[in-house]
Design a protein around this nucleic acid. Structure first.
Length: 568
DNA sequence: GCCGTTTTCGGCCCGACTGTTTTCAGTCG
């Protein structure tokens, strides 16, 4: 059997480290930048870059050329980029960590190591305490202080980023609160949360106001603010009860569009946008678009006008990751992204019949109140053996009779066992109207083969939370998403975007790959309580980040149509 | 090291902030 290929994240990490080490060595920054961009591209590529490199096709990815492709092959063959192994032998591993400290970059890190002989974080702490760093020109007492503070914080630092599902409702509520303030004009969330990225570092808000200082003041006095970290006339940073950082920036109305675009990012999108603009004689900044020749500056209140001025159709925030959206927008070929309002049902939810917290009736009524036409109750199979399953179906029938034409589907979520078999008999599955199959245990045991086996079962309609990751808690299984997508095409099985905030599984790039392969994606909440039905919002955000249209999302279709496609 | 709606060579986003400086390099987003 062929040896397993390295994962994209691991390949990217080697290039990232190589970039760091080269930078410490003082290599030309553009070469370093090229490695960093390539690493970023790899992380956002859904298919295996190692496989692409072996086929000589990795250089089709933008930012990856012949040299980097060869280095990827080195990783496959020898486990490590040759140039990386060489540098690791000469530069102490901790020196790279110096660069991670705020205010320290590669230049300073290199000088601390070379000129003071400081090679570990421990040595660095000692040198700062002994006030030896200030012997270097350009470093002073402030720098030593900052390093010591950062090293102390490092020890207690939380490595994880908070979840979109936690931050989004909070930031939207704050946006609403600011809009209600008499002095506020335009207010919007910005940054990664506006792009609906799965996690965030801080929550950004952009606003215009007749009286900026008044709005900033109002912001810092909102009831939930526990600490004001910074406050000026036009911006402030505050901390909330949950420990989230909120940044408010009040900007001039005439360039609101420019600023909102700038502060929405992503950084990579903005860099690519500006590079393309430079080639056309335009200099883009948050303050406006300057025609280099004439000196004219274009400012606008509207992002739509800004993109139009630069020659693009409007690019929705979820697509702004420099993943092909600029080229597509230039040609006017962006997809019309799916919206929450397009959904007609939720095809994966639980009730007190298994581990849910709200009753079947409560869940169903809440789903109906959301405007859905159908709802699949998919309680866990191991909690619903034979007689109980029959009893649940009776309860479903009674509700259906009462609520028609609203339709409750007899669903089930079966577990894929370690040997790839399902934990419910085929005869029972045959009587269900909607079958989800998911990995719930033994994640390290041949996940790909087990999922493929489940898909071969004609009763299985959809694979739930494919990689079984829990953001910040459990890494994704090593399931081959590409092979699963191939099998989904072959067997007519659907794939889920699970909207639980810590799952969001499929992740964006994988869902995009599924869409490109023609696999209909089902956006489900996997709700275990009524309130969780609202997670659809972030699941749809994930679908939009995957470039998916209404047509590519199964549960935008009427149930009758879905039912027909199940009779394959 | 990558890349091309003038380029296969000669460029490579833009501005703010900070600390330690008398004019700026380094860092950050």
């Amino acid at each position: 059997m062929a040896k397993a290929l390295p994962r994209n994240a691991d390949v990217a990490a080697q290039f990232e480290l190589l970039a760091d080490l080269l930078e410490i060595e003082g290599e030309p920054s553009f070469r370093v930048l090229a490695y960093r961009r390539a690493a970023q591209r790899m992380r956002e590529t859904a298919g295996s870059v190692a496989q692409l490199a072996l086929n000589g096709r990795a250089k089709n990815l933008s930012g990856i050329g012949k040299t980097i492709e060869e280095k990827i092959v080195q990783i496959v063959d020898d486990g490590e980029i040759h140039a990386l192994a060489k540098r690791k032998a000469t530069i102490p591993s901790d020196v790279v960590l110096f660069m991670r400290l705020p205010g320290l970059g590669p230049k300073t890190a290199a000088r601390i190591w070379r000129e003071l002989g400081v090679a570990t974080l421990e040595d660095l702490k000692a040198a700062a305490e002994a006030q030896r760093l200030r012997s270097l020109a350009g470093l002073g007492a402030k720098t030593e202080e900052r390093i010591l503070k950062a090293l102390a914080a490092e020890a207690t630092a939380q490595p994880f980023r908070p979840l979109l599902g936690e931050g989004l409702p909070r930031v939207l509520a704050v946006v609403e609160a600011l809009r209600e303030h008499a002095g506020a004009d335009l207010v919007s969330e910005a940054g990664s949360v506006r792009r609906r990225k799965e996690t965030f570092r801080d929550l950004d808000i952009i606003a215009t106001a007749a009286d900026p200082a008044g709005l900033v003041d109002h912001f810092t006095r909102l009831a939930w603010v526990v600490e004001v970290a910074a406050k000026g006339d036009t911006k402030a940073t505050v901390l909330s009860q949950e420990g989230f950082r909120f940044d408010l920036r009040v900007v001039p109305p005439e360039s609101y569009g420019n600023l909102l675009q700038h502060f929405t990012g992503s950084k990579e999108h903005n860099v690519a946008l500006r590079e393309a603009a430079v080639r056309r004689g335009l200099s883009v900044s948050e303050y406006g678009v300057q025609d280099v020749e004439s000196g004219d500056v274009f400012r606008t209140r509207s992002e739509e006008e800004l993109y139009a001025h630069l020659g693009y159709e409007y690019i929705p925030p979820e697509l702004r990751e420099n993943a092909g959206e600029l080229e597509a927008a230039r040609r006017g070929e962006l997809p019309a992204l799916v919206e929450v309002g397009d959904l007609r049902g939720d095809l994966h939810a639980h009730s007190t019949w298994s581990d849910g917290r709200d009753s079947l009736e409560e869940m169903v009524l809440a789903a109906q109140a959301r405007g859905y036409a159908y709802f699949a109750v998919c309680d866990h199979s191991h909690r619903l053996r034979d007689a109980r399953l029959e009893a649940q179906w009776e309860a479903i029938d009674a509700l259906n009779a009462r609520l028609a034409p609203f339709r409750i589907l007899r669903g089930i979520e079966v577990s894929i066992r370690a040997d790839g078999s399902l934990d419910v008999a085929d005869e029972t599955l045959a009587r269900c109207e909607w079958v989800m199959a998911s990995l719930h245990a033994s994640f390290d045991t041949s996940p790909t083969e087990r999922v493929l086996a489940a898909m071969e079962n004609p009763h299985v309609d959809c694979i739930g939370h494919l990689t079984a990751r829990k953001i910040n808690r459990r890494p994704p299984t090593e399931v081959s998403v590409e092979r699963v997508i191939e099998a989904a095409v072959a067997t007519g099985t659907f794939l889920e975007i699970n909207s639980q905030p810590d799952r969001l599984d499929l992740r964006d790039v994988h869902a995009r790959l599924a869409g490109e392969a023609g696999v209909p994606v089902v956006v489900n909440t996997d709700a275990h309580e009524v309130a969780a039905l609202g997670w659809m919002e972030i699941g749809i955000g994930q679908a939009r980040r995957a470039w998916l249209t209404k047509e590519q999302i199964l549960n935008t279709r009427p149930w009758r149509e879905i039912e027909r496609s199940l009779e394959r």
